[in-house]
Amino acid sequence: MSSREKTAFVGLTVFLAVFPWVSALSRSFSHYVDVMIFAGIFSLVTIGLSLLMGFAGQISLAQAAFFGIGAYGSGILTGHFHWNPWAAMLAGVCVAAAVAWVVGVPALRLKGHYLAMATLGFGVIVHIVMNEEVDWTGGPSGLGGIPGIRLAGRKISGDAAWFYLVWAFVLAAFLFSRHVLHSRVGRALRAIHDDEKAAEAMGVPVSSLKVQVFVYSAVLAAVAGSLYAHYVSFLSPGSFDLMWSIRFVLMVVFGGMQSLWGALVGTVLLTFVGNEWLQVFADFEILVYGGILLVMALFVPQGLVVWMDAFFRRRSRLQPTPSDGGS
């Protein structure tokens, strides 16, 4: 890690460690812990998606479906069959990975962006299944009574405990993804992003790497879905439709596709926008999201984090310093 990034990471960890305490001090902020739990859950989805979009150069419009597979997997296995929640999470993750592999292998072997349409179709199919298989999923009226989760013999209860559990997952996913990006695989992914043909000519196994990234993004989404199921304890198909998949894409685009920090920042900001500040204009929500997505894609394609980074570097370069020797 560069020293800048190290500082940022330490800052983030400290911020997360004190956040539940600080927000508990004032009544008007105390529910921000709840919002941050959702932001953490969504961050797991968007970290995987940003690897896929920013580094493998592919887009998936089925992340809400994988999120839903994890959530309903946990909900059904713990609710109907009384499985241990962690075993159920593992089962959901395995299903999501297998499905992603089946969808991803043929779609990614094709050129260009067939994955976009294949995942779009797949996401809608999953949503239809959730609505139709009433015996298992409860259909449109939802699936309730999902038990809580236990860790080391203690039930996770209360916002602070959930906050630390979820963000521990996020930090682990963040560090692991960062590690992947700075390894051989990460360099290969960047090569694919820059020029697929050149990468292939250099011996990079392009389609197999893309499939691996797609499966990894599905796994993270399923873990997130499982945590979501146990946290809210009630699922309905509306939380896993196409609009949610687009929201995940928006979070990644907003923060910046080519940086994991971008995914984190974009997700936290947009979760607050969605949960807190847009409640007033519920009907305008979709217009606001469309507008943000269009403006970002057209004018700030690198995303907020990279743009701000460049902005502040430019500012600091304008300050006259002795070492600024005519560069």
Binding site: Y289, G290, L293, L298
Partner: peptide, 22 residues
């Protein structure tokens, strides 16, 4: 890139959908 073009047309589609809803 093709990726940005896909994002742009998706954004436009949800703008049209939101506008129609209003």
């Amino acid at each position: 890139t093709v990726l940005s073009m896909i994002i742009v047309t998706i954004a436009f589609s949800i703008l049209l959908k939101g506008g129609a809803m209003l």
